Structures are given as C-alpha cells and as structure tokens.
Simulated assay, not measured.
Amino acid sequence: MSIRRSVVVALVLGSGFGAVTSVMNEVASPMGAIGSRIAGTGWASTAEVTTLLLDAGWAWAALAVVAGALTGVRMSGAAAGALALISATTVYYLSDSILREEPLALYGPELVQWSIAAAVLGLPLGAVGASINDAGVIGLLAGLTVPVGAAVQMLVLPPSTGASAANPAAAWAQGIVFAAAAVAAAVVTARFVADSRRRRRAEAVDAVVS
C-alpha cells in the first residue's frame, strides 16, 4: 500500500472510530439528548453494551493494529497506527464538544494528554499489525496480540468496574469479548500450524529433490 493511501486509510479508520465511540457514549447515557429518549428500552441496553466495547483499551489498541495490518510494512504500519489513534482521539473529543454543546477548549488538556499517548502507543501497535502476515512465530505473536490483550483486560479490568457487578450490559460485553478473543486466537493458531506444516512439507520435498 502506498504511503498516501496508508495515511488516508489511517485517518478514515481513526476518525470513524472516534466519532462512533463518542456518539454511542451519548446514546448510551440516560442524560444524553438521545439516550434520555430510549432509556429503559432494548436499544438502550444494546447501546450500553456497544459503548462498553468501544471504550475499552483493547478496542483502541485493535484500531492501531488494524491500521498497521492494512499497510503490511512495519515502518508504514507504525506510522499508520499512531495516526489512526491520534485522529480517533481528536475526532472523539471534537464530537463530544459538538454533542454536548461545550467548547472544545474545555477538553484541551485531555486531548493533548491522550494524543501524546496515542502517538507513543500507536507506533508499536501499528508495527505489530504490519507483522501479522509474517511467517513463523513473529506472525503468530502479532496475531495473538489483540485477542490475548482483550482477554487479559476482561480479567484484570472487567467492564463492570465502576458499575454494578450485576450490570447485565457489562456481563454481555465481557462474554462477547471472551468469545471473540477465543475464536480469533484459534484462527491465528490454526493458520500458524497450517503454515508450519506446509513449510515442513516443502522442506522435505526440497531435501528429496536435492
């Protein structure tokens, strides 16, 4: 993928993710203009589960990994990962400012803080994403980064933190993450095993021919 296209893709992914996350937070909040209208309905429950998933650290990390994976090159992937997170952070606060009818300057300190974090963390995460299609152990570890990280976060910092332990939305979010992480890890591992077998067969054929 060309550098220009990588930049565009990272900006689109990041901006879209930041906007959707901000909007879903507003919809899930019973104090929001939209959330107050759907409070107590199935739509409200769905919005709450969705926002718990989007607000999780692993989801933001996955954004950088995906942006990097789309480039396929480590240097470009690192830059794409950082750019995607920075744009997501910027649009997130910009959207919050618009939805809440508050000045963007009010979010200035947080925006700067999280933009710096996005740049620092986005670089290695983007590089990891660009390594997903590598052969061998490197590709395996890169592919397991997001599902393993997501599962660990659900154990260490479950979505029920700060809310009622019996919150059904938190339980649903946790279950969805565990299920998705298990499927993703199984797919990545199966691909690694299949690739390893193909390489061994190819090496055996080469040895016979030689």
Rank of each mutant, 00 (worst) to 15 (best):
V120C: 08
V120T: 10
V120D: 11
V120M: 08
L121P: 00
G122T: 09
L123I: 07
L123G: 05
P124V: 00
P124S: 11
L125I: 03
G126N: 04
G126T: 11
G126E: 09
V128I: 09
S131V: 10
S131A: 15
D134V: 01
A135M: 08
G136R: 02
G136I: 05
G136D: 12
I138T: 15
G139I: 10
G139E: 14
L140H: 05
L141C: 03
L141E: 01
G143K: 03
G143N: 12
G143M: 04
V146C: 09
V146Y: 13
V146D: 13
V148T: 13
G149L: 02
A150D: 08
A151H: 04
V152D: 13
Q153F: 12
M154F: 11
L157T: 14
L157V: 15
P158T: 02
P158M: 13
P159K: 04
S160H: 06
S160K: 09
T161R: 14
T161L: 15
A163S: 14
S164T: 05
A165D: 13
A165V: 08
A166D: 09
A166G: 02
N167V: 00
P168T: 00
A170I: 03
A171N: 00
W172C: 06
Q174V: 03
G175N: 06
G175R: 07
G175D: 02
I176V: 11
F178N: 09
F178C: 00
A180M: 11
A182M: 05
V183M: 12
V183E: 09
A186G: 06
V187R: 08
V187S: 05
V188R: 02
R191A: 15
R191G: 15
R191F: 10
F192I: 02
V193R: 00
V193N: 04
A194I: 05
R197V: 01
R198P: 00
R198Q: 05
R198V: 04
R199C: 07
R200Q: 07
R201D: 15
A202N: 01
E203A: 07
E203P: 04
